[in-house]
Design a protein around this nucleic acid. Structure first.
Length: 511
RNA sequence: GCCGAUGUAGCUCAGGUGGUUAGAGCGAGGGAUUCAUAAACCCUAGGUCGGCGGUUCGACUCCGCCCAUCGGCACCA
């Protein structure tokens, strides 16, 4: 089954920070999990490079917008490498392949009558070259917040998208697809706003030029948001039917899972589906809008200067390793409706209690006993696994169900639960005592074989989260990673006699 | 201002069509033990379940009001 996982494309006017890292890491864990199951995954990320902000930043720096975009896009790509992310493509909105297709789609919207030329009238700040909404203008007492000069009433011709005409169709779609927007709290927000009624939205601007020219009326450029949304299908070549890209990738639409931050929900949950409806393209499967990281109880903001930035993140890599970072992102992050607090102490505690004490320690004690009592050779199990094959199968089922729902915490818990059960089993059966009694050797063999095999299976389930460390575990257990999940989690993968190395995966660290 | 949510142990959160001693994980304190990364294991939380009022034999669970926090309110990438 094809599966298409996307991050938002990141605005090149920003520097990479924890927000970008988080979304991309979540998608990466998910993509790896799906690939592990043998699904045909296409994982996309990229950069959004047009718009007035980029134009202005570039002018301030005395470079062309393209040069600025090139530089910052390269930085985002470098970061992906540092994070070990496994995206299958990286799309940039200034690439010809994207621009051409966006023009094709916009032309189609125009031809279909879904886009029309209209007049916009509003409160305009001449100094800032910006329009304000009525509410905002009133708040500002109809004066520019920067210059203090009165706002003027200005009109502008823009092309509009007939969002309003999709009201009914959207309502029906949401009713028929209750899981389309996740989590439920976000869906309710969308439904609430939808009830207030939809207005048409402008899809072009004329007050700057750094954008894709509107086909047939080139003093207009396509508004960045519209430009950006189309990346999800231009990357698949849907705007060039029959083209090389489409031949290879069209199969991934509509199996799309858009993972986004909650700040851009409206565009993805309403405008994007409406655009697709207008183009008569099928809807993506799901929009998952996660929440935000806050830092030490404080909202992160540019003005506060308290973003967890790249140097900070790289500090965590240096101390705890990349896998520990992924673990913290995936299991402690704001994937549901409320924000998560990023705290150094919490990071350390999570590392110690999950990774050192369980994921590290459990394989360590099992491999140590096998080394001590059997010279490292996997003992034979005369009990054919006892209850463990059933337990493992249940954990795998739980893991699969969680992955289906992008429930990374649930998937992690399914795997961790197995290791905790192994710990409890060792506590209960006391193999280290049986080892002193030659009459109970057979029992000892079974216990340790069952432990080792369960550790192996739990390790497979943890691979999407901890790819580097679970690769170490595989080496210690003399396994390879070629086969699909169902085969790899089948009971009995560790043959008797296989020499298992002692392993210590996560070193204990000082806070 | 409008719409919507949340407020339960130090922290993060479960929970209940109202009914004896309100739960988990983590942290903290204590214990016992050694196969292991002083790890796994056992014991310990006296938290007015945000406040006030109402309904009720009885509310943390229902209703009202209030307070606090958070999210959304469209041209913002």
């Amino acid at each position: 089954m094809p599966a298409y996982i996307t991050t938002p494309i990141y605005y090149v006017n920003d520097r990479p920070h924890i927000g970008h890292a988080y979304t991309t890491t979540v998608c990466d864990v998910w993509a790896r999990a799906m690939r592990l199951r043998g699904e045909d995954v296409f994982f996309l990320t990229g950069t959004d490079e047009h718009g007035v902000k980029v134009e202005k930043s570039a002018a301030a720096k005395g470079v062309t917008p393209q040069a600025l975009a090139d530089e910052n896009a390269a930085e985002f790509q470098r970061v992906l490498k540092v994070f070990g992310l496994t995206n299958d493509d990286f799309i940039r909105t200034t690439e010809p392949r994207h621009e051409k297709q966006v023009q094709y789609f916009v032309k189609r919207l125009l031809d279909a009558g879904s886009v029309y030329l209209g007049t916009f009238e509003g409160w305009y700040d001449e100094g800032q070259e910006e329009y304000y909404t009525e509410t905002r203008a009133k708040e500002l007492d109809y004066k520019s917040p920067i210059s203090g000069r009165p706002l003027t009433r200005a009109t502008e011709q823009n092309y509009y998208f007939k969002l309003s005409s999709f009201q009914k169709q959207l309502e029906d779609f949401f009713a028929a697809n209750p899981d389309f927007v996740q989590p439920a709290a976000r869906r309710n927000e969308v439904l609430g706003r939808l009830r207030d009624g939809l207005q048409d939205v402008p899809v072009t601007r004329t007050n700057f030029t750094w954008g894709i020219p509107f086909p047939g009326d080139e003093k207009h450029v396509i508004y960045v948001w519209i430009d950006a949304l189309f990346n999800y299908i231009t990357a698949l070549g849907l705007g060039e039917p029959g083209g090389a890209l489409a031949t290879e990738r069209a199969k991934y639409w509509p199996a799309a899972y858009h993972v986004i931050g909650k700040e851009i929900l409206w565009f993805h949950a309403v405008i994007w589906p409406a655009l697709l409806m207008a183009l008569e393209l099928p809807m993506p499967r799901r929009i998952h809008a996660h929440s935000f990281w806050i830092a030490d109880g404080q909202k992160m903001s540019k003005s506060m200067g308290n973003f967890v930035d790249l140097p900070t993140i790289e500090g965590y890599f240096a101390k705890y390793g990349l896998d520990a970072w992924r673990w913290y992102m995936a299991t402690q992050g704001p994937l549901q409706a409320s924000d998560s607090d990023f705290r150094a102490q919490h990071f350390h505690e999570t590392y110690t209690s999950d990774l050192v004490n369980v994921v590290g320690n459990c394989p360590s004690r099992v491999t140590a006993m096998i080394n001590k009592y059997f010279e490292g050779k996997m003992p034979a199990d005369s009990q054919a696994g006892g209850e463990w094959p059933t337990k493992c199968a249940a954990a795998v089922a739980q893991w699969n169900a969680a992955i289906d729902e992008l429930d990374l915490v649930g998937a992690a818990q399914a795997a961790m639960g197995l290791l905790r059960e192994v710990d409890a089993f060792i506590h209960r059966t006391e193999p280290f005592k049986l080892a002193k009694d030659p009459a109970r050797a057979e029992e000892l063999c079974s216990i340790l074989a069952q432990c080792a095999e369960t550790v192996r299976i739990a390790g497979v389930l943890l691979e999407p989260f901890l790819p580097a460390k679970m690769a170490e575990l595989r080496v210690a257990l003399k396994q390879d990673d070629g086969a699909p999940l169902s085969k790899r989690v089948a009971w009995g993968g560790l043959a008797a006699g296989t020499v298992l190395d002692k392993c210590a995966l996560f070193p204990r660290l000082e806070a």
